[in-house]
Design a protein around this nucleic acid. Structure first.
Lengths: 222, 222
DNA sequence: GAAATAGTGTCTTTAAGACAATATCAG
DNA sequence: CTGATATTGTCTTAAAGACACTATTTC
């Protein structure tokens, strides 16, 4: 029988690209990624993706949830595995594999993180995080962000808000604005409505208070 | 600075679902997965996916290639990462993470592996490997096979033989037979041709020797 | 009623699928 | 020429996109 002790073992970390749609300085909804920086007294580290090392016999998803709770105070999300980064030179500290993850914060919860100085929402330009004064993210975090954004956008091609950024029930317009923000392009309202309706169930309630005909609210089907 | 020694480290393995299209007993082309069994003298282990432990500072893809060379005598393939299996109880020997991979053997090379008693091509039924006398594969290898098959089939929806099972140049009919075998369903010949032609470039050469109008041979575009 | 937004009818354009005619080879 | 298979024409059907009309609200 193979003895596990015969094999050298790498450190294993998890890194998370936490995405959401938040309002930028110009008042525009933008797909953004949550960055974290270590703060020791008055010293600040570079902005990077939240991550941490896997603990003994811990599941990867649990490690991600623990990381988000410890570093960002976020809970209740559902991480999705993306890819393993295995370049032996990727971390100066030694041989570290990192399992990259994607997770998503509901739009209602995203603004609360603005209050912290060790966290920031960086808008996505193209497929990369745009941080003033910092060209790139450390390690291979830029490629993780690119992978997360590509996966996230692809999943929105035919399903309504599959990551549940919106609280139910919502109007078709809210849904469309969300999809437009995260795809970075405008969508035709009637085509979008017809594509999404089969995946939605109407509720009794309608929007109120605004001008114009009130919009019906929907829930996701299934 | 974080000291890596503070963290317990898991063993990390790679497992590979090697797929190809091979002729079964009935003379039918079938999508199949390559299984391996340990043979010590007259004792035989269960059939399972080839796999091994990651070596110090080794890349995952290299570990896969080394495994295939050592256990199956195969070289020259290009492994693709699928998913990390992280259930702490998945291996009785201890805490072992496994990075599942998909790889593909060209149809021309697949038959040569039939000669070995420690290897076998198991046809895929549904999304699982069918092995007479063995209901399931050990560990979580059945789920790796399912994941590999799903990924492999999905990648064939619009691209001609993306994993390069066929040697160039090939006729549209050979290409269609390949796709039919791995999808497990018949395809309409004219629709298939029109879907694939944009991704192919015609060569000067045509098939010869068979009855009927000779078919033109093509190469993949790009 | 005017303005605004929701929701639908329908026409146009494009793509997919099916069927069948034509093309080119071996014998 | 006959039989076989490749290749293409074209008709039918379905989907996507665009445009405009109708519906329901606030003011």
């Amino acid at each position: 029988m193979t003895d596990l002790q015969d094999f050298p073992r790498p450190s294993v970390a998890v890194d998370v690209a936490v995405l959401s749609v938040v309002v930028d300085d110009g008042g525009v909804d933008r797909l953004s990624v949550l960055l974290h920086r270590r703060s020791t007294g008055t010293e600040h580290g570079k902005w990077s993706l939240p991550g941490s090392f896997l603990r003994e016999r811990e599941r990867l998803a649990e490690a991600v949830q623990r990381t988000l709770l410890d570093k960002c105070g976020i809970s209740g999300l559902t991480p999705r595995q993306l890819v393993v980064l295995d370049d032996p030179g990727r971390d100066d500290r030694g041989w570290v594999l990192s399992v990259a993850h994607l997770d998503v914060v509901p739009v209602a919860d995203a603004p609360s993180l603005f209050s912290r100085t060790d966290l920031r929402w960086a808008p996505i330009r193209g497929e990369a995080a745009a941080v003033p004064g910092q060209r790139r993210l450390p390690f291979d975090h830029d490629s993780i962000v690119a992978e997360a954004v590509a996966r996230f956008r692809g999943d929105h091609a035919d399903a309504p808000d599959p990551y549940r950024l919106l609280e139910e029930p919502f109007t078709v317009r809210e849904l469309r604005h969300l999809h437009e923000a995260l795809l970075g392009e405008d969508l035709q309202k009637d085509t979008f409505r017809r594509a999404m309706l089969p995946h939605l169930v109407a509720t009794r309630s309608t929007e109120s208070g605004s001008v114009g005909r009130p919009a019906r609210r929907y829930r996701r089907r299934g």
